[in-house]
Write a protein that binds this DNA or RNA. Structure first.
Lengths: 346, 346
DNA sequence: GCTTCGGCTCGAAGCGTTTCGGGAACCGCC
DNA sequence: GGCGGTTCCCGAAACGCTTCGAGCCGAAGC
């Protein structure tokens, strides 16, 4: 195995100079640096990660903890894990994946032994043991999501409240006065679950109240047939909503579209549609659905950035809420039978 | 930070003895061992993973490489990654997750620097650059799946051919003479994709030929509406199949059930159903569907076992195909209008 | 009583890198 | 020409652990 000693010898310098040159630290004369780099190239030298970790006290590995629970969606989970991995790589870090059945224990293990330099806590619950633990660890950590108590934590998340508001604003502006909200399964709104579903709903209902928009809410289970029936019922009342806001699993989207087709309602002529805070692509539906997307990359990128800043240096505890944005696919229009100027974005 | 020196001092032994005792290696008198363990406990000593990795040349980390491609399903991917993680943990290993956009480069990186002790290659393509690379690396690796050329490799996978055969046998035994096969999207059967879809289809069609069973095949895209239409067409011919075998995405299962309901066919009275090689639970459908499941845990457990054997010691290259098994949920019955003894498993 | 053996323990040599402190050479300036 | 300040380079000290080889000692074998 070729070591830095070999490189130094071939380049005719000391190993310390070789180390400085290879790592871009210290001050090394350009000519010397080139000589060392050429030697390294020639010998196909690769830094021994174990030795480097030992000497530097850094492994260049981040732990990513992501529980798999029944009340959330696999694709969302995967999206965040992959986004975290991608973000980490941009800073030359790798990720070590911690699973549900090791949540706290795993964190303790990779942390106390110095296996990782930092922790990314994904998909956090309102009350999450991982967060409690992270507070006590000396290894820096960052939370993607918003636990009940954010004191002393660095948290990053989409502003779900604003996302809910944005959807309502858009529809209100288009002239809708009664909207249907298709939410997550009821269990997702309980205090022991994640808190983004209630946050979104809060934003939505409060803004609706402010703007004088009525909201009919349903929370179908993760099951196509139930979802479809639920949506059909939602639309079959005497005074049905003229628009739907979806913050639900993918299957519910399909179910909603099928239910609409079945009832002979077309999108967007009869009913407008907005999907809020999804990680999947709502353009792939037919028709494509307007979205206020949940971009895992955004949250994870920012989280990683902050985490690395914590690793070398201090970062003030904070809660960063990322502003939502709107993706127009033409699934929102004025409700039927109403006149006025065409709906335009703010 | 408390080190092994502290433990040794408190226990009144040398650090080498402490090391042997703590790692269960060498020979240490029981009394001494206990004394050392008590000291470690008292001092809350945790082995420094970096130092240990450096000294021992082992990091206790395995790389898991898993490409995300459009032609497979997120939930399957996640299932295998999690299964790999779980298996690794059982042997006190952690996993470092490598993503698509780094397939070969990432492997090279974590390998040449000694970041990981071994590699688990998931979801392998028939022709996969990761496999080519793995062959040249000095770090041991194991493949979950079956590439075109398995020479010199250790491969583990479900026996998809046998799984396909098993489904047909079951249906033939129940008296079915014409079955419908709902496969993956057409692209999955091309030579540049994974080869488990063609393997399964081969087993199915060959066994069908042997048993005199006709097979009508469809390969719907990953899209509910298309899938549903396709299944409806499959069942709307003059002489429709009396049973369906599904090796398809979850949405296609839902679509098939809805299509059947729409056509007024009930399961299993009018049509029998078997789902083959799925990682999701087919019991959650209504009605529950018989399955020849793809158990990610099985493949990953065995793969990990072999990988660790390779890490310390030699393992002969091999291809291990795991035998499929049948899970009965009552969705298979004799075709309507036929007499004879009730269908019973072999 | 001697040797031999095996169980137990220890000292010390790494493992390959980072990084500190210092020294040599050189510069510009008074 | 002396002197403070840079720039560039080097030697050597860690970093905490594993593991080899050797030593000691009591028990067993002759």
């Amino acid at each position: 195995m070729t070591t830095i000693h070999d490189v130094a010898r071939v380049a005719g310098v000391s190993i310390s100079t070789a180390s400085y040159a290879l790592n871009g630290k210290g001050s090394v004369a350009p000519a010397t640096r080139r000589r060392i780099q050429r030697a390294a190239e020639k010998l196909d030298y690769k830094t021994n990660a174990r030795a480097r970790a030992f000497a530097s006290g850094r492994t260049s590995i981040l732990a990513v903890t992501e529980p798999l629970r029944a009340d959330t969606f696999t694709s969302n989970h995967m999206a965040f894990v992959l986004a975290a991995a991608k973000a980490a790589r941009r800073y030359d870090y790798d990720i070590l994946l911690l699973t549900q059945e090791e949540a706290a224990g795993g964190l303790r293990r990779v942390t106390s032994g110095g296996t990782v330099d930092g922790i990314v806590i994904l998909d956090v619950l309102t009350h999450d043991e991982r967060v409690e633990l992270a507070r006590t660890l000396k290894v820096p950590s960052v939370v993607v999501g918003v636990p009940a108590d954010t004191a002393g934590l660095v948290c990053v998340d989409l502003d779900f409240v604003a996302a809910g508001r944005m959807a309502v604003q858009r529809l209100a502006q288009a002239g809708h006065r009664r909207i249907g909200f298709i939410g997550h399964p009821a269990a997702s709104y309980r205090p022991e679950a994640s808190n983004f579903p209630p946050r979104l709903r809060t934003g939505l209902t409060e803004e609706a109240g402010r703007l004088g928009v009525a909201v009919d809410t349903v929370t179908p289970e993760v099951d196509y047939r139930t979802a479809r029936r639920t949506v059909t019922e939602l639309l079959s009342v005497r005074e049905p909503p003229t628009a739907l806001v979806l913050h639900a699993h993918e299957e519910a989207h399909t179910a909603a579209l099928e239910a609409l087709a079945d009832l002979g309602r077309t999108v967007p002529d009869d009913v407008s549609l907005i999907s809020v805070a999804q990680t999947f692509d709502t353009a792939r539906f037919s028709p494509a659905i307007d979205a206020v997307p949940l971009v895992a990359e955004r949250s994870c990128e920012r989280a990683t950035e902050l985490l690395l800043a914590m690793i070398d240096g201090d970062v003030e505890p904070r809660l960063e809420l990322l502003s939502p944005f709107y993706v127009d696919h033409g699934s929102v229009r004025r409700p039927p039978g109403t006149a006025g100027p065409p709906a335009t974005p703010t």
